[in-house]
């Protein structure tokens, strides 16, 4: 039992540290790496919640595929230190206000619901919970329509990205 608790704190600190690093670090390459560390720590938290499939999916899809593209792009075009603050304007005035509003909202939400589960054992999980079979059952039987709608959404996004990239190239040829 103590092993799970140690792992929880390691993963939680890793997740928080990674998330802070994404925002605070000035070099975009290090920010991307902090995001990778954050995602891996999140996968560890999923493991603690008996969601092995989601943990593996998190690492394969986000840390392994999406973030590699980020690393690829940032390593090519980024690398220099970016100034932390923008040059004034509306963002620097309203940014902190909106951030504070979201922080207060999140605090209210967390105090309202999430903390009740602390110190209890949490929801009961049946046998096979979080296994590939159980998740496949949910995705392809119970939530089939939503699942297919999400895949169409991704397809539209991919096609849209191709169309936008094409148009950009056309403009360059004119100029």
């Amino acid at each position: 039992m103590w092993f799970e608790q140690v792992l929880f704190f390691v993963a939680a600190i890793g997740a928080l540290g990674g998330a802070l690093g994404v925002v605070i670090l000035r070099n975009p390459f290090y920010s991307v790496l902090a995001l990778v560390a954050h995602l891996v720590a999140l996968a560890m938290l999923f493991l603690l919640l008996h969601a092995e499939f989601i943990a593996a999916g998190q690492v394969v899809v986000y840390a392994g595929a999406v973030m590699v593209l980020y690393v690829f792009v940032v390593a090519y075009i980024g690398g220099s230190d970016e100034p932390l603050r923008p040059e004034g304007g509306a963002i620097s005035t309203f940014g902190p206000l909106f951030a504070a509003a979201i922080a207060i909202e999140l605090c209210i939400a967390m105090l309202g619901t999430g903390l009740e589960a602390v110190d209890s054992k949490g929801a009961d999980i049946g046998a096979g919970f979080g296994s590939p079979a159980a998740i496949g059952e949910l995705l392809l039987r119970k939530f089939l329509v939503a699942f297919e709608a999400a895949s169409f959404l991704l397809l539209i996004a991919a096609v849209g990205a191709v169309v936008l990239a094409r148009r950009r190239r056309g403009l360059e040829e004119v100029a």
Binding site: A43, E52, A56, G57, A63, V68, P132
Partner: peptide, 24 residues
């Protein structure tokens, strides 16, 4: 593990951060 193949891919995809970071 019931997700052995995914486990293989998860560590495989983390493994090439070694190459990318080393090169960078």
């Amino acid at each position: 593990v019931p997700i052995a193949l995914l486990y293989f891919f998860a560590f495989g995809s983390l493994g090439f951060y070694g190459l990318v970071l080393g090169g960078w």
